[in-house]
Design a protein around this nucleic acid. Structure first.
Lengths: 223, 223
DNA sequence: GTACTCACATACTCTGAGTACGTACCCAAA
DNA sequence: TTTGGGTACGTACTCAGAGTATGTGAGTAC
C-alpha cells in the first residue's frame, strides 16, 4: 500500500525521473569506459560516446563538466573495482604472509586487464594530471599495498625491526613495493609467457622478503 | 684554401642551407620541449610552438609528421639526456655496490626534474602509446638499472646465487628495481622534505639489498 | 489543472590539427 | 652568368571535435 506522495518514499527513494537520469548517466560512463579502453582517450570522440549510449551531447554535458570529467568517472570506477578485488583477496587470508602472497597474485592479475592498463596506467596520468592521479591511487590500490606492508611489519612472525614503527618509513616501503609490483605487472603482461613471468616475479619478490626476514633473524640470534 | 665546390667538403659537411634547416628543426624541438614541460602536451598548441620558434606551421610540418612526432623527438632527447647523466654517475665508480649507490642517487635526481616528470612520466605513455614508451625506456633509463643489477650480481662481493646467471631472472629483478626506483622518486619529489624522503628511500633500498646479501651469506656459511 | 523544473535534444561557435599550394632562396650544372 | 630544380619554408585553407546557447517536452509539486 503506497504512502502519501508528500512524504518520503522509503521503498523507492528516487523518483522515476531520477532513476531514468541515473540510468542515462551510467550508460554514458559504461560506453565511455568501453571506448576509452578500446581506442584510448584521445582517439575517442564524445560524438562516439553519446552515439553508443544512444543519447546526445546535451545529455552528456548535462551530467558532466566535459570530456575529462567523463574520463575521471570511468577512471574512478575502474580503480575502485581493482581495489575491491585486491581487498577481497586479502580478506580471504588471515596470516599476514599469506595476505602478502594473495595480494601479490591479485595485484598481478588486476594490472593485466585492458581497462586497468589503458585507463589507469596509460591515459590516467596525462588526462587527470599527475597530482589527481596520485590521489586516486593513494585511496585505492596503493592503500591495499600499504595494508599488506603494515600487516607484515606488525605481525608476530613478521619484521619487528625498529623502523617498523616509523610511519614514514612504512609509507616509503609501501611506495617502493607498489612501484615494484606495478612495473613487474607490466613485465608479466608484455611477456611471451605470462605464467612463467608471474612465477619469476613472485620468486623475486619472495627472495626480497626472505632477505628482509633474514636480517631480522640475524638481529634476533645476536641478541 | 677551399676546394672545388663539386667535390665533397670535409671541413663543413653540411651546406649553409642544411645548417639553417637543422637550426630551425632544433629550435622547434627546444621550444616544444619547453612548452610541453610547462603546459603539458594537450594544452600546448602547435601555433604556440611555431610562434615561440619564430617560424610557421609550414616549417613544422616540413620537418615533422605531426604533433606527436614533435613530442617523440622531445621525449627521446629528454630520455637520452637522463640516461647519459645516470651513466656518467655509474662510470665514476668502480665497485659494483658503489655503482649501485651512485646510480640510485642519480636516478632519484633525474626523476625529480620537471622535463622528465612531465614529458616522460606523465605524458609519454599516453602520447606515444605504451608499447613505444616501453621501448624507449628499455634503451635508456631501464638499461642503466639493468647494468647496475648485472654488475652487482656478477661481482665477487656480490650475490652469487644460482639465479644470478638466469638472464630472465636478472631482467625480472631489474624490472622490479626500476619500478621501485621510479615510484620512490615520485614519493621523493612530492614530499614536503625531499632530502629526508630521499634518505628514507636510500635506507629502504639499502635494507632490501642488505637482506639479499644476508641470504647469500647464510648459504655460504651453511656450505 | 497549472506552474515550474529537470533532463535532455538541436543547432550553433570556435579552437586547433592537418593540408594544399605558392614562393624565395640555395646549389649545381651548362 | 644563367638556368633549372629541389629544398625550406610561408600562406590560406579545410575539417574534426570540444564546448555552448537555447529550445522543448515530460515529470513533479501544490
Amino acid at each position: 500500500m503506497p504512502r502519501s506522495r508528500t512524504e518520503e518514499e522509503p521503498r523507492s527513494r528516487r523518483s522515476r525521473r531520477q532513476q531514468y537520469s541515473a540510468a542515462t548517466r551510467q550508460a554514458l560512463v559504461d560506453e565511455a569506459t568501453r571506448l576509452f579502453t578500446e581506442q584510448g582517450y584521445g582517439a575517442t570522440s564524445l560524438d562516439a560516446v553519446v552515439a553508443a549510449a544512444e543519447v546526445t551531447k546535451g545529455a552528456l554535458y548535462h551530467h558532466f563538466a566535459g570530456k575529462a570529467a567523463v574520463f575521471a568517472e570511468a577512471f574512478d570506477a575502474v580503480e575502485t573495482r581493482a581495489a575491491e578485488r585486491i581487498t577481497a583477496a586479502l580478506d580471504a587470508e588471515d596470516d599476514p604472509w599469506d595476505k602478502a602472497r594473495a595480494g601479490l597474485a591479485a595485484f598481478l592479475t588486476v594490472v593485466q586487464e585492458p581497462e586497468y592498463r589503458r585507463i589507469v596506467v596509460q591515459d590516467g596520468p596525462a588526462v587527470l594530471g599527475y597530482e589527481r592521479f596520485r590521489e586516486s591511487e593513494e585511496r585505492s590500490t596503493f592503500a591495499c599495498v600499504t595494508d599488506i606492508v603494515r600487516a607484515v611489519l606488525s605481525s608476530e612472525r613478521g619484521l619487528q625491526a625498529s623502523w617498523a614503527e616509523d610511519e614514514e618509513m612504512l609509507a616509503t616501503f609501501a611506495r617502493i613495493f607498489f612501484g615494484a609490483l606495478s612495473s613487474a605487472g607490466e613485465a608479466v603482461t608484455t611477456s611471451a609467457d605470462p605464467e612463467a613471468a608471474a612465477g619469476r616475479v613472485e620468486a623475486a619478490i619472495g627472495l626480497i622478503i626472505a632477505g628482509l626476514q633474514a636480517l631480522v633473524d640475524d638481529e634476533d640470534t645476536r641478541g
